[in-house]
Computed example of a mutant assay.
Amino acid sequence: MYYKNMEQINSDMLEQVLNLTKGYDYNIYTENDVQKTLNKEILDIEDLKILLSPAATDFLNLIAHKAQYETRKHFGSSISLFTPLYISNYCENQCTYCGYNCKNNIHRGKLTIEEIEKEFKAISQTGLEDILILTGESRTASSVEYIGEAVKLAKKYFSSISIEIYPLNTDEYKYLCQCGADFVCVYQETYNKDRYKQLHLAGPKSVFEYRFYAQERAALAGMRGVSLGILFGLDDFRKDAFSTAVHAYLLQQKYPDLKIGFSVPRLRPYIHEHKEQNPHYVNEKQLFQALCAYRLFMPFSDITISTRERAGFRDNVIGVCATKISAGVKTSVGGHKDDAKGDEQFEISDSRTVAEIVDTIKQKGLYPVFSNHIRL
Rank of each mutant, 00 (worst) to 15 (best):
I9W: 14
M13H: 14
Q16G: 07
L18G: 10
L20E: 13
N27V: 07
T37H: 00
L48K: 01
K49S: 14
K49H: 11
A55E: 05
F59E: 03
L60S: 01
L62C: 01
L62Y: 12
I63V: 08
A64R: 12
Q68K: 15
H74D: 02
F75K: 00
Y86W: 12
S88P: 09
N89R: 07
C91I: 03
E92C: 08
T96G: 11
Y100T: 12
N101V: 01
C102S: 15
K103E: 15
N105D: 15
I106N: 09
I106W: 08
I106Q: 07
G109I: 13
T112C: 03
T112K: 01
K118V: 14
E119Q: 13
K121N: 00
K121C: 00
G127K: 14
E137I: 07
S143N: 06
I147W: 07
A154V: 00
Y157T: 03
F158E: 04
S160E: 13
I163Y: 03
I163C: 04
E164S: 13
I165S: 02
Y173G: 06
Y175M: 15
C177M: 15
D182P: 02
C185N: 15
Y187M: 10
Q188P: 02
K193H: 15
D194N: 15
R195V: 13
K197A: 14
A202L: 05
S206C: 08
F208N: 06
F212K: 04
A214W: 11
A221T: 03
L234A: 13
D235R: 04
F242C: 09
T244K: 05
A245W: 01
Y249L: 04
I271Q: 13
Q277K: 03
P279A: 08
K285R: 03
M298E: 10
M298T: 00
F300C: 09
I303L: 08
R308S: 02
E309W: 06
A311T: 08
F313E: 01
F313I: 01
R314H: 05
V320Q: 06
A322C: 10
T323Y: 00
S326Q: 04
A327W: 01
V329D: 06
T331H: 09
G334K: 08
G335T: 12
K341H: 15
F346D: 06
I348Y: 06
S351G: 02
D359A: 14
